[in-house]
Design a protein around this nucleic acid. Structure first.
Length: 350
DNA sequence: GATGCGTGGAA
DNA sequence: TTTCCAAGCAT
């Protein structure tokens, strides 16, 4: 049985020193909480804020999102990355409408059955909206807990994560604490993330400002930055070459919808087969200067192949239904990968 | 258990 | 410039 020393201090600290004015806070609307949690997966708060506002404005309810076209959802998501989140977001909205009468389930265990919602996101929604006693375990919480308990196990291992989940669940506010403070679960959940994001940071943690400094083993050892332990297999960054056909005819550009699997899944993109223009009888494209697009696990080297065809009476033929001639003035309505958007906008992405 | 998935910011 | 990684999840 945990002592509640951590939980009580986190709850009280969060009330006065945590973040309490973010756009998705001060509501128990599961739709808004869910939307924010999906956007915040592997994505920093400052990046999410504008996207969140645009989504809520355009899709104020789970029903409106469920009724939307996936292409519009992806267009709103474009630039935020990890596009499977947007596809799962749409699938989740439809599932909530079709199988849950348009209301998100309350229990974390039920939320976790929905697409795009894993254990941590399910717990966050259930804790924020309904005060359920379930633990989250994101990067912030892992850092706080490994420091607080001086856990030197490699957090990339499954066994370590199992242990961290157990500890996290052990530390959630007790029934007694929740009776005294009904918002304790929401405060605690938010507080653990706030502490990790603003005080118990990866570099130069502000231990003097920490509400649990005197109980933190890593602080006692004087080496908080040694936690968490993470093995790094250093490998050379692989290079992927990508050809993009930049074909324009009379104010239109040929786009191609990418398959759901793989990078930029579901987005509209310049075609990757540079032979298309000759197959369409439009002549040969000319290679432009290549440029690099850096991703976490590889470097993408993009070579645009340019062809502008000025025929007055072009029929805008395509080779399959995944291709579409798009007016350049309508590009804003399409979800394009960041470097493709930059290329078409004439911005150098180097 | 390991891998793939985006983009932007910090050091 | 390079590396790391940020409110993880799916396969």
């Amino acid at each position: 049985m945990a002592t509640q020393r951590l939980a009580l201090r986190i709850v009280n600290w969060q009330r006065t020193h945590g973040r309490n004015e973010l756009p998705w806070q001060n509501t128990r609307d599961p739709y808004r909480v869910w939307l924010s949690e999906i956007m915040l997966q592997q994505t920093q708060v400052t990046t999410v804020i504008d996207y969140y506002h645009r989504f809520v404005e355009r899709f104020p309810s789970v029903k409106s999102l469920a009724n939307a076209d996936i292409d519009e959802v992806l267009a709103l998501w474009a630039g935020l990355g990890y596009y499977a989140r947007a596809r799962n977001l749409h699938a989740c909205a439809k599932t909530v409408v079709d199988l849950w009468q348009g209301e998100f389930p309350e229990l974390a265990a039920d939320l976790e059955t929905l697409p795009g919602i894993g254990a941590s996101t399910a717990a966050a929604i259930a804790a924020f909206c309904h005060g359920q006693r379930v633990a989250i375990l994101d990067g912030n919480v892992k850092r706080v807990l490994t420091r607080y308990f001086a856990i030197r196990d490699d957090i990339t291992l499954t066994a370590t994560n199992r242990r961290l989940w157990e500890i996290a669940q052990n530390e959630v506010p007790s029934h007694q604490l929740i009776s005294a403070q009904p918002d304790a679960m929401a405060r605690y959940t938010q507080g653990m993330m706030d502490l990790g994001a603003t005080v118990c940071t990866r570099h130069k943690p502000k231990c003097k400002q920490c509400p649990v400094q005197q109980h933190c083993l890593a602080n006692e050892l004087g080496v908080p930055e040694e936690f968490p332990v993470k093995t790094v297999k250093r490998r050379d960054k692989p290079v992927r070459d990508l050809n993009l056909l930049w074909l324009t005819v009379n104010g239109h550009v040929l786009l191609e919808k990418r398959p759901d699997q793989g990078i930029w899944g579901g987005l509209w993109c310049l075609p990757t087969d540079t032979n298309i223009c000759s197959q369409l009888g439009l002549g040969a494209a000319v290679p432009m200067a290549s440029f690099a697009h850096e991703l976490t696990h590889f470097r993408m080297v993009i070579t645009p192949w340019r062809l502008h065809h000025a025929a007055a009476s072009q029929t805008f033929q395509t080779l399959n239904k995944n291709q579409r001639w798009v007016p350049l003035l309508s590009l804003d309505g399409y979800g394009l990968p960041k470097p493709v958007r930059a290329l078409l906008a004439g911005i150098d992405d180097r």
